[in-house]
Structures are given as structure tokens and as C-alpha cells.
Amino acid sequence: MPPVINKEKCKACGICADVCPMDVFFGTKKGEFPVITYPEECWHEGACVQECPIEGVIKLRIPLQMMICYK
């Protein structure tokens, strides 16, 4: 479930935990890798992706039940 964090690239700056409107990163400690405590509360708006200072560190995975329908 979203978001997915690349720990090899993450600098643990904490910005994602700071800005997330739903606080899915609740419990993240300063200076440590972000923890995704409440993935089911993700709104998929992408604030964490936008504010992360290193491109590609955070990716939102759209859950299968939200997969778009088309023809």
C-alpha cells in the first residue's frame, strides 16, 4: 500500500512525515526513516512525493481496488 519509500536513497529528512495531510507517517521519529503507520489513510494526493527533496525516493502505488477502468 502507498507510499513506497526507497530506503537506499532516503536521507530521513522527515519532510514527508511533516507535510502529509492525513499523517500516514504518524510515529516517525526525527532523523530516522519514515514509518508508514496508517497506509489505509493515504489520500493519494501525493504531497509526500511532491515535497521530497530527492526525486524518485517516494512513489505512490495505486492500490488494485483503485485501478482505473477504461476501454
Binding site: 511533516d18 502529509c20 495531510p21 494526493e45 504531497a47 511532491q50
Partner: peptide, 12 residues
């Protein structure tokens, strides 16, 4: 309640 940087209906 969250963070003014991206809160609310106009947050993004």
C-alpha cells in the same frame, strides 16, 4: 489539523 502546506480541499 494537518499541515497548511497541503491541507484542505485545495491542498494539492
Amino acid at each position: 489539523k494537518s499541515n497548511t502546506m497541503h491541507s484542505g480541499a485545495a491542498g494539492m
